[in-house]
Each structure stands twice: as structure tokens, then as C-alpha cells.
Design a protein around this nucleic acid. Structure first.
Lengths: 118, 118
DNA sequence: GATTTAGTACGATAAACCTCGTACTACGAT
DNA sequence: ATCGTAGTACGAGGTTTATCGTACTAAATC
């Protein structure tokens, strides 16, 4: 698992923390926001890479960019370029290695709150 | 489990959310702070009720009060008066009922980070 | 009653955060 | 080459947060 950005389409780099540098407090902060929580939930539900636009977030484009960056810099999602869009994927395995049980617990609780079936 | 404060020594009331009103985002926010995380860790490690002064936090008294209130209002700790001091206890069972697996995951991760034995 | 101990209440301050709009870039399609 | 789509960068505005000091309260002790 290399950590240098996979620049499929542009020369732009996307910084991702190594798994060993994922920090509990940063992850908790990142997840403690309703918009970001809904992003994480959608990524988990669809279990496929999603472009930012697919989330239909109730915020502006720049705010959306901000939230995705927070998630990426916390080590919660992996992002890469594909054409004009940027795809995101949950770093499920990395999170499980570094913070075992945390993401499943958060996903379960939030799904339960929303009345979604597990 | 009654929710009206147990005013052992004073007439002062301490507000505690009912278990059913514990919110994921509030809990995540509350745990996403180093001082509060160390409070929760100490409460879990000592497995007994602790007075605020026993934590020896690296902040002033008023800041300490603030952090304990955040934890209490999030539903993470229960507090009651005893003499001149205020004792705190983790609401382990309530959290497990409402947000299963979350607290153990956080405690494990933080203990691992600190190099403490589980 | 006076003192000590433990903690609260009330601002104040400085940093961080969420939000937005505008201007810009990169890629794909026409 | 032009246009549209998807997203970034930057800066600003407003709110929340963490921190503190000072002044206060309640209980235990002297």
C-alpha cells in the first residue's frame, strides 16, 4: 500500500496519512459532524467508490470540499482523481487495523438512529 | 434509573441526559478532546467513582469544571455530590446500550496509543 | 464563627471550525 | 477552440470551543 497519491488524471497530489499515523482524536473529531457522518454512512452503504457530487450534500461545493479534506486528512477516506471527478472510498481495513471496532460501532449507531436496517 | 439528580449533599441539580437521548455526535465531540479522553480513561482504569481533583489535569479548575460538564451533558459520565467534592462515574452500561461497542473501541485505541496493557 | 477544601459562575480572549461566495483549474465533450 | 462539469483555493463572516482569572458558594474542619 503506497501512500503517495495515485494521480490518475492530474498532477495534483492528495495527502493521505499512513495507517500508523491515524490518530484517534482526529478521527473522532472528523466523525463528530453531521455532514461528514452522512458521507461516511453513504460510502459504507454503497460499498463502492463515489464521486463527491453523488452525495447530494446540503452544503455548498466549497464546504463539501472542506469536509472531504477533513475526512481524508483524518485517514478515514481515500481519494483519487478520475476524469473531472474525485472518487472517495472508505479506508475500512486501515481503520480496523488502527482503531479496531470504532468505525463499525459508529456506523451501527448512526444507522440505528436513522432507522436503517443493518 | 431515575434521571433527576441525586443531590446527596447540596440542593444543586446536575442535569444528566436520559440514556435514550444520548447522541452519537455529541459523544464523539466530547471524546475528541485530549483532556476529556484522559478523564474517561482514568475513570475506566480506576473502576471507581473519582473526585475531580483526583485526576490532576493539566488545566485550571474552571477549565476542569467545563470538561466535566461536557462529559456529563453528553451522557458519558454520571456525577453526584459528596461532601465538598463531586464524584464522577462512567455510564458504561448506558453507553453500551445506546452506542454498542463505541466506548470499548475508544478505550482500547487510547490505551494502545499510550502503551498501556489492556 | 473562621478557615480550608472543592468546585461553580461569569465574563474575557484567542483559536478553531463551518459556512459561504467568488474566482480559478482540470478534464471531457461538442 | 469553446463550453460544461467537477472540484480547488482563497478569504471572509459568524459561531463554537478551550482556556483562563476572579469572585463566589457549599461542606467539612478547626
Amino acid at each position: 500500500m503506497s501512500e503517495s497519491a495515485s494521480a490518475t488524471a492530474s498532477g495534483r497530489r492528495l495527502e493521505h496519512p499512513e495507517t500508523s499515523r491515524i490518530r484517534l482524536e482526529t478521527v473522532l473529531s472528523a466523525l463528530a459532524d453531521p455532514v461528514r457522518l452522512s458521507i461516511v454512512l453513504a460510502l459504507d452503504r454503497e460499498h463502492q467508490d463515489m464521486a463527491c457530487v453523488a452525495f447530494e450534500l446540503p452544503v455548498s461545493k466549497s464546504t463539501s470540499t472542506h469536509h472531504f479534506r477533513v475526512l481524508r486528512e483524518a485517514g478515514i477516506i481515500h481519494q483519487y482523481y478520475e476524469g473531472t471527478s474525485r472518487k472517495s472510498r472508505l479506508r475500512t481495513a486501515d481503520l480496523e487495523e488502527r482503531l479496531p471496532g470504532l468505525l463499525p460501532a459508529v456506523l451501527n449507531a448512526e444507522r440505528a438512529r436513522r432507522g436503517e436496517h443493518p
